[in-house]
Design a protein around this nucleic acid. Structure first.
Length: 130
DNA sequence: ATGCTGACCAGGC
DNA sequence: TGCCTGGCCAGCA
């Protein structure tokens, strides 16, 4: 009885990865959003930790997770941030000169509240595909 | 148990 | 528009 819903470090990790798995190609989300959607508000850092400890063979689109500023979070020791940008551009995500992503256009919203391309029709978004 | 670190975030100047 | 500070929380030595 009782057995409070699976609440373990493993369960949380799994839930976080589950949310990330829902992010469609060519879209990005912030760590904080992932945490909130996973039922863990205020746990953005944990999301980052999970991604940092990911196994290489783990099928997770970690590149789709960026910080709230629409930028790739610096690891400080690895060149993975460069790889992340590369992977995202390959999905059609556009970075500006300062290396920032327009979350209004590429930010993923699970409820489809706002539709990208609504404010400005960017042929870049549709052309990118691959 | 205590303290420090970290792929964060929001607010203030 | 950009930099700095405080807050939050879970691992790890």
């Amino acid at each position: 009885m009782s057995a409070p819903a699976a609440t373990g470090p493993v369960a949380r990790r799994r839930r976080i990865l589950s949310v990330i798995a829902r992010v469609p190609r060519g879209r990005v989300v912030s760590y904080g959003e992932v945490a909130a959607l996973a039922g863990l508000p205020r746990h953005a850092r944990e999301v980052g930790r999970v991604l940092a400890t990911l196994a290489e063979d783990e099928p997770v689109a970690w590149q789709r997770v960026v910080n709230a500023g629409g930028r790739v979070s610096p690891r400080g020791w690895s060149g993975d941030e460069t790889l992340q940008r590369l992977l995202l551009e390959r999905e059609g995500v556009v970075f500006d000169e300062r290396g920032r992503i327009d979350l209004e256009r590429f930010g993923w919203e699970p409820e489809g509240r706002r539709r990208p391309g609504g404010g400005r029709r960017s042929r870049t978004a549709t052309a990118a595909r691959r």
